[in-house]
Amino acid sequence: MTEDTLSEAEYDAITDAAAHWCMRLHAVDCSAEERVAFEQWREAHPLHAFEYEAMLEIWDVAEHLPRPDPVVALPASNPAPAWRQYAISASIFALGLPLVAYTGWNMGWLPNSYQHFEASDNVRQVTLNDGSQVELNLNTELTYSNYKDERRVTLKKGEAFFSVSHDITHPFIVKAAEGRVRVTGTRFNVWMYEDQVRVNLVEGSVLVTSNTALPGDGLRLGPSMQAQYRHGDYTPQISQTYDNDSSLAWRNGKLILDNLALNDALPLINRYLNNPLMLADTSTGAIRVGGVYNIKEINGLVNSLPKVLPVYLTRNAEGNPVINSIPKHAPKS
């Protein structure tokens, strides 16, 4: 079967299969055998992978649909797959029918525009549909959805610098990990690695919350202030930044480590690596490191560590490089 000879029915079958696999792979009872079968299906034809990626983007939109009324909800024996099936079916229906899509927009359930951006090997600058400018650092992925009552960005991984178009009636929300940054028009940076998030404000003001499940809009930042949070934090940690702050050096292609303990430096380094560095023990994490590095050459930084620090590298069972401190010899008696 080639792409040129596919009939309309065959295209529809691929779309249906992509929707099925999207639902199954997000289901809590998805088995290992099903995942193997999915990989075989995806590799069978180029259109399979294409349609599946398109379905994932619809899935992101479905995240924001309202939950069904509990009175008419599907049985609770397997609530997550039932809700997902409802959500993705509703989003496909709404995106396919202009009248329903218009109703979803007016109710604040569905966006009238959706964008997905990735940056892999190069820093990338993009323009959102509202006119806001975003710079994406290496290995960064985010989505943008424009809703009636707000503009939403989900930072899925990486780091981005935002120059937000001012609109006091249409707030701009950035979701990162469990937290959220809320603005109307400003310039700020959001860095994320695993469950750690750091927000640096350059201009304007933002409200930062560490957990969207908590009440309130969070803590307010002014220019030259920074907020940090991670999983489980009740409120962000707020601090002042200074003229020599290096948080935004990535916009010039640099990673600056200013005499940091390895324990603090590793999240900054690891976000550029496919195989993150690990620490052998807490004493190794206390060793300090400094320097200016090219963000495209962080692998070179890893290899140079034994040359500039009293450490050596090994690998763990998963193949990750591990930093070990060189033990100090006891003095001779």
Rank of each mutant, 00 (worst) to 15 (best):
Q133Y: 05
L138A: 11
N78K: 04
T140G: 12
F162V: 07
W105M: 10
T169A: 11
D121L: 13
A119P: 08
I168W: 02
E159L: 02
T154S: 12
K148T: 09
K157A: 09
V174W: 08
A76Q: 06
N137C: 13
E150I: 02
D130N: 06
F161W: 07
D121F: 02
K157L: 06
H166M: 03
W105T: 04
F162N: 01
A94W: 04
V126C: 09
T154M: 07
N129C: 11
L136C: 07
W109I: 05
Y147V: 13
T103Y: 10
P98V: 05
Y86H: 08
A82N: 08
A101T: 01
Q85L: 04
G158H: 01
S165K: 03
S132G: 11
V164N: 05
S120H: 15
L128S: 10
N129K: 12
I173H: 11
P75E: 01
S113A: 14
H170T: 06
S132R: 11
F161N: 01
P75G: 03
R124C: 14
A101Q: 14
V164I: 14
D130V: 09
D149E: 13
A76Y: 00
R124M: 13
K157G: 01
Q133K: 15
T140Q: 11
S165I: 02
G108W: 06
E150Y: 15
T143R: 08
E150D: 07
T127F: 03
A87H: 03
H170L: 06
A160G: 02
S89F: 06
V123G: 07
V164L: 06
P75T: 02
W109K: 07
S120T: 14
N137Y: 07
V164P: 04
L155G: 09
E135S: 12
S145T: 14
V100K: 03
P79A: 07
I92N: 06
N139Q: 14
W109Y: 15
T127Y: 10
L99F: 14
V100D: 08
A73C: 01
T169W: 04
D149N: 13
D130G: 09
L155D: 09
N137K: 10
S165M: 06
T127M: 05
H116M: 12
I92M: 12
K157E: 09
S165F: 02
W105V: 01
A90V: 00
N106P: 00
I168C: 01
Y86I: 01
T154A: 12
A87M: 02
E150P: 00
N137R: 14
L95C: 08
R152D: 03
P70D: 07
E150M: 12
V71F: 05
I168V: 12
Y114L: 13
F93N: 05
Y114I: 09
S163A: 11
S113R: 13
F117E: 12
V123I: 15
S89N: 12
W105L: 12
F117M: 14
E141A: 15
N78A: 04
Y102E: 15
A73E: 08
P171L: 11
R152I: 10
W83C: 02
W105N: 10
F162C: 03
D167Y: 01
Y114M: 13
A73S: 07
